[in-house]
Write a protein that binds this DNA or RNA. Structure first.
Lengths: 342, 342
DNA sequence: ATTTGCAATCGAACCGGTTCGATGGAACAA
DNA sequence: TTGTTCCATCGAACCGGTTCGATTGCAAAT
């Protein structure tokens, strides 16, 4: 592999001139520029070494992504979109899995920072103040995806989580449901609390009372949801419908219903937030609200590159941060039955 | 951020001694070592800068992965496993999507090489000789995953693809099927041709004739499989069973069957290779062979790290390459009917 | 003719480590 | 005492770029 010095020697100019010719061509006479180009071809100079470039300029051609579970399909779409955009601009993407552990997340963020990543996309699982401050201190632009963190001024891309659960709740209410079981996510997590709020507010707005017995923490897990569904359906006064706060939890609920020998929607109606690929082929097709993943992924990919290039061109961090909120989309299935008033 | 020079100054030793103390502690007197450790703490020296380290040592703490579609669930599992192992040893993972385009793949490989990745995991979509040679020239260890490439001596982790289709074919034959439609993958691709061979060989071993009309190229895509399924079922003498060579193609076939108003398995039996998450909740549950993804991912993650550390400790590339082949696992569903001989 | 201004180019320092050959001193053998 | 080894440490070169202040030469302004 030949270096910039080989090119300089071949072209009979100094190393700095070659560097200049590559980075700010207008500062080099067209004649010299031509000679350098030819010399580069002659010694088969490919492109500036990214590692050396990073060390001296302090900025790499890397974009970092940190998620709680990178094997998840939702993240897969995001990853792909980001990678395609990044590749087009000469960036590579580093992904890392925090495994929903706080210390890990912190460690990863430091590691990424030490790699001088040009930008980051993060779905924080829990960020303390120290970490928040640390993120801010970095000159690196970053975007919060899906999980918002109040008190962290930066860009955010996500869904209107309150609207998601509100939409489903309203749908159930309109079909006559009065007792709705809410299978919630991890307490304290942004999306989880938003979704719960959307549920509760909608009930209140409809003049229905909220039975706290029906609002359960199902941990965003299959197991949690499965167990809680069985528990809810075993109550003396069971709900007539369930609202599961995630794709996995909807599927667990459906499985629990099947295992109890009950019929959905005959015995119990089911709705959920988010789908999984091919979920529409499962019967009954579950009525869900989905997030427009592709659009969200695109928006995120575009935004991070835009921020990176802004920073590149010298402009300061600024305070023009935006929240890009996508509305959830209701997808009717056959998992909800109409209830006749008693 | 303090550097190794700050530590050296604080400890009153030279820079090289500090470096030595970090990398080969046994070469430094215990007293000096102690002083350096204390100095490091005093100036809050975190850890050697990975970028500088890469530039001077020629090896980074990065593992590269290249796949044709990184949003795919199969890859997601692999990615996660690799990332977890990598993280534990201080590596970060770069992933890149070749989008099944040859030039892209080539470009990515070069880019990764210029980043001095410590190792690579690749599922090549098409590697010409130039590229093959290029890969070999790199001192970087790499593992082929899923897609093997004959004539490239390196480690491989994958499934016994012939056995996968053979298992399904035999299953169908035992249940009386004589005309089996084969929905094949992209021609020329390793997995595709292996699976076709497994199918054809099994038919021959059973003394059945192979009707070339029933072996179709469905491109590993949903659309391809959907269209070909409709075509096969419209033949004057249609097959009684289908064997789809991928998860997506099985689902497409099932959808086509449904859309034709046919019953599976009543009118047509269906089997497939690979599942998708939650596929067992679709009815009829499709009889498939699955790859033990977790085990494969683990094996790959372990192997790449092992290779990297071997190389680290100075041993030469060597020729002890291994093929780690996992047997596919038959998962019976309700998508295959018994045929009574006519 | 002298000064000023500007464009083109250069040299050197720098980014933060690794690595190798050199050096100095202590221990040991002749 | 002198010579040989060996251990601990050091200085300098190097990895391959970027960047800034300095220099040179030429044209325009005074």
């Amino acid at each position: 592999m030949s270096t910039i010095r080989d090119v300089a020697r071949q072209a009979g100019v100094s190393v700095s001139t070659v560097s200049l010719a590559f980075n700010t061509p207008e500062r080099v006479s067209s004649e010299t520029r031509k000679r350098i180009a030819q010399a580069a071809a002659e010694v088969d100079y490919q492109s500036p070494d990214p590692v050396a470039q990073t060390l001296s300029s302090g900025r790499s051609q890397l974009i970092g992504m940190v998620q709680a579970d990178i094997s998840n399909a939702f993240f897969g779409k995001l990853l792909r979109e980001v990678e395609l955009h990044a590749h087009a601009r000469g960036y590579l993407v580093i992904v890392s899995d925090s495994n929903a552990e706080f210390e890990r997340e912190e460690k990863i963020l430091r590691h990424l920072a030490s790699m001088r990543v040009a930008g980051m996309i993060v779905s924080p699982c829990g960020l303390n103040e120290a970490e928040t401050a640390h993120l801010h201190d970095l000159k690196t632009p970053f975007i919060l995806f899906d999980q918002k963190h109040e008190g962290l001024s930066c860009d955010f891309v996500g869904t209107d989580n309150q609207l998601a659960s509100a939409t489903l709740t309203e749908h159930l209410i309109q079909l006559g449901h009065r007792r709705i079981g809410f299978l919630g996510g991890v307490e304290g997590l942004y999306t989880a609390s938003e979704r719960e709020q959307g549920f509760v507010k909608t009930l209140q707005a409809s003049g229905l009372e909220t039975d706290s017995e029906l609002i359960v923490d199902a941990r965003y897990t299959y197991e949690g949801s499965y167990a809680q569904t069985r528990r809810l359906l075993a109550l003396e006064n069971p709900p007539t419908a369930l609202l599961a706060c995630s794709n996995v939890m909807s599927l667990a609920a459906l499985q629990a219903i099947r295992d109890l020998g009950l019929d959905c929607p005959g015995d119990i109606s089911l709705t959920g937030i988010d789908d999984v690929p091919w979920m529409h082929m499962i019967s009954p097709q579950i009525t869900v609200v989905v997030q427009p993943v592709e659009a969200m992924a695109q928006a995120t990919a575009r935004l991070i590159l835009q921020r990176i290039e802004q920073r590149q061109s010298g402009s300061e961090p600024g305070t023009d941060f935006t929240d890009t909120i996508f509305p959830p989309i209701l997808q009717l299935g056959q998992s909800v039955a109409q209830i006749t008033r008693t």
